[in-house]
Computed example of a mutant assay.
Amino acid sequence: MPIDPATALAAPPRSAGISWDHKDVLLYHLGIGAGVPATDPDELRYTLESRLQVLPSFATVAGAGQGLVGGLDAPGIDIDLAAVLHGGQSVRVHRPLPARGTAVSTARIAALYDKGSAAVLVLRAEAADADGPLWTSDSSIFVRGEGGFGGERGPSGRAAPPTGDPDRTVERPIREDLALLYRLSGDFNPLHADPGFAALAGFDRPILHGLCSYGITLKAVVDTLLGGEAVRVRSYRTRFTGVVFPGETLRIRMWAGDGAVRVTAVAVERDEAPVLSDTVVEHG
Rank of each mutant, 00 (worst) to 15 (best):
residue 2 P to A: 13
residue 8 A to T: 00
residue 10 A to S: 14
residue 11 A to S: 12
residue 15 S to L: 01
residue 16 A to E: 14
residue 20 W to F: 13
residue 23 K to N: 14
residue 23 K to Q: 15
residue 25 V to Y: 03
residue 28 Y to L: 00
residue 31 G to E: 00
residue 41 P to S: 06
residue 54 V to M: 00
residue 55 L to H: 05
residue 58 F to C: 07
residue 59 A to I: 09
residue 59 A to G: 08
residue 61 V to L: 12
residue 65 G to V: 13
residue 68 L to P: 04
residue 70 G to A: 10
residue 80 D to R: 14
residue 81 L to R: 07
residue 84 V to M: 14
residue 91 V to R: 08
residue 97 L to R: 03
residue 116 G to Q: 06
residue 121 L to W: 05
residue 127 A to D: 14
residue 134 L to W: 04
residue 142 F to R: 05
residue 148 G to Y: 08
residue 148 G to T: 12
residue 151 G to E: 01
residue 153 R to D: 08
residue 154 G to Y: 02
residue 155 P to T: 07
residue 163 T to W: 11
residue 164 G to Y: 11
residue 168 R to L: 09
residue 169 T to Y: 01
residue 171 E to P: 05
residue 174 I to H: 08
residue 174 I to Q: 08
residue 175 R to H: 07
residue 178 L to M: 13
residue 207 I to L: 06
residue 210 G to M: 14
residue 212 C to E: 03
residue 215 G to S: 12
residue 225 L to Q: 11
residue 226 L to P: 08
residue 228 G to W: 01
residue 235 S to G: 02
residue 236 Y to D: 05
residue 238 T to A: 15
residue 241 T to K: 13
residue 244 V to P: 06
residue 247 G to F: 03
residue 247 G to I: 08
residue 248 E to Y: 10
residue 248 E to W: 05
residue 250 L to D: 00
residue 252 I to W: 09
residue 254 M to T: 01
residue 254 M to D: 10
residue 267 A to V: 15
residue 273 A to K: 09
residue 276 L to W: 04
residue 280 V to G: 08
residue 282 E to M: 11
residue 283 H to A: 03
